[in-house]
Amino acid sequence: MNLAPDLNQVQFVTLSNTQLKVTILTLGASIQSVYLNGYEHSLVLGASKLTDYLGSAKYFGAVVGRVANRINKGHAVIDGNVYQLPPTLPEAHHLHGGPAGTGSKNWSIIEQTDDMVQLQTKLADGEMGYPGNMVVDVFYRLLDSTLEMEIKATTDKLTICNFAGHSYLNLDGTGSILDHQLSVKADHYLPVDASLIPTGEVTPTAGSAFDFHQLRTIGREDYPELDTNFCLSLINRPVQTVATLKAPITGLTLNYQTTEPGIQVYDGRHIHLDADSNINKGELNAYAGVALEAQHWPDAINQSHFPPILLAPEDTYQQITRYEFG
């Protein structure tokens, strides 16, 4: 079975206001570019070739799910029933909804204005191994110098649900974020094993290499490798700033805001994109961007003390995440 989307059907949506110009792809509901008034470079990484979104630029700016992050060996027990979800090769684990998750589907445009677009995709019962027919909507809105992403989902059968936006940020356009400064308002983080599956421990950040309460420069020697979930809360909360990213060269700041109880921070150390594929026309290599991924905690279906990711037919999943540039 061919899981690849028809790239000839992909549409480009441009949103703009006085402060921002944003391009959204229906492929993966992906944020391809974000331009802030007065700056020539995109503040997120994006590919100019659609084929790269199925290869070296996979997940760039995409909405990934129906369960973002990793599920240990794809094993899930839902209401006493065992489900085996396919691995996302070359990993042994199920990652970002599987090999044909929402990040590689071509979404439909439901509504569009100058500064808003609603995209939708439908996931069938049994698709990628998950129970339940699911309808997923993503709304992108421009609010002055803020890009808002709202994700909603419903199901007709008890299932698991945990979406994330997967944009890579670079606020100065130099091809490296090693001079950027990052802070994260998290008192705990999740240690992982060698294959990035949480051990089950919820560890205080204080006194550890993962204490980001104060701004820290990403390229410093004491900076840990990051593909790490920071624990913000045990439940969804009103939208609030959970992380700040600053670029000294441009002076730009991103306040990253969300309702979600966790944020995965990935330092982009495996990025590689050729110069002719990058919308900013420069080769992208390791640490070209940092991904901030608001979500529930990884492998939550196998960790009973993590915030739950079950979604019932009578409920609606909702996430609001905002990129506030200044």
Rank of each mutant, 00 (worst) to 15 (best):
V135H: 10
R322A: 04
Y266E: 09
D179C: 03
E111F: 11
Y317W: 09
L284C: 08
V192N: 02
Q120F: 14
T259P: 00
V77R: 08
Q181C: 10
E225W: 12
V136R: 02
G55T: 06
G97H: 07
N236Y: 00
R220C: 12
T174P: 03
H166K: 08
F230K: 00
N280W: 03
H272V: 09
L273K: 03
G207R: 05
N255A: 13
Y168G: 10
T102S: 10
P5F: 04
Q303R: 10
L232G: 00
G268A: 05
T199R: 06
I263F: 00
G65A: 06
T113A: 14
V64G: 01
Q9V: 06
A243H: 03
N2L: 12
D137H: 13
N17K: 00
G103C: 07
L54M: 10
L182Y: 02
V82F: 07
A186K: 01
V13D: 08
K281R: 12
D222W: 11
D52Q: 07
T174L: 14
T199W: 11
K49A: 15
S42P: 09
Q120N: 15
Q295P: 04
P204Y: 06
T244Q: 12
F230A: 01
N69H: 04
D144E: 14
G61W: 00
C161H: 13
F230H: 02
T199P: 07
D211I: 06
M128T: 08
N2D: 14
N133H: 14
Q214E: 15
M128K: 04
D179Y: 01
G268N: 08
Q181S: 05
Q19V: 04
H41D: 13
I71H: 00
Q19N: 13
T205H: 03
L226G: 01
I109N: 15
R66H: 06
L273H: 01
S167Y: 03
R237C: 07
Y130S: 02
E283S: 11
T321G: 02
T199H: 08
S108I: 10
I235Y: 11
N280A: 12
T18V: 05
E111M: 13
G251N: 07
V192M: 08
L50A: 06
G97L: 11
T250F: 05
T113L: 13
G28D: 07
V82H: 09
V138D: 05
I271T: 05
A186Q: 02
K58Y: 13
Y266T: 04
V77D: 13
L310Y: 15
A300T: 09
N8F: 05
A275D: 09
T258I: 00
V239T: 11
V82Q: 08
F139K: 11
G103R: 03
N236P: 06
V13Y: 08
Q9I: 07
L182F: 04
T228C: 06
V138P: 09
L311N: 01
L119S: 04
Q118L: 15
G55F: 01
Y53P: 06
L171N: 02
A194H: 07
S233Y: 01
F60Q: 02
V44H: 03
D79N: 15
P248V: 11
R269E: 13
V192L: 06
D179A: 07
Q84L: 14
S33H: 02
D156N: 12
G61D: 01
L232D: 00
K281W: 12
V34W: 00
D6E: 07
H93V: 04
P87R: 03
V117H: 14
P261D: 01
V138R: 04
P307T: 00
H180F: 05
Y39F: 14
L45N: 07
V265S: 05
T217N: 05
L171F: 10
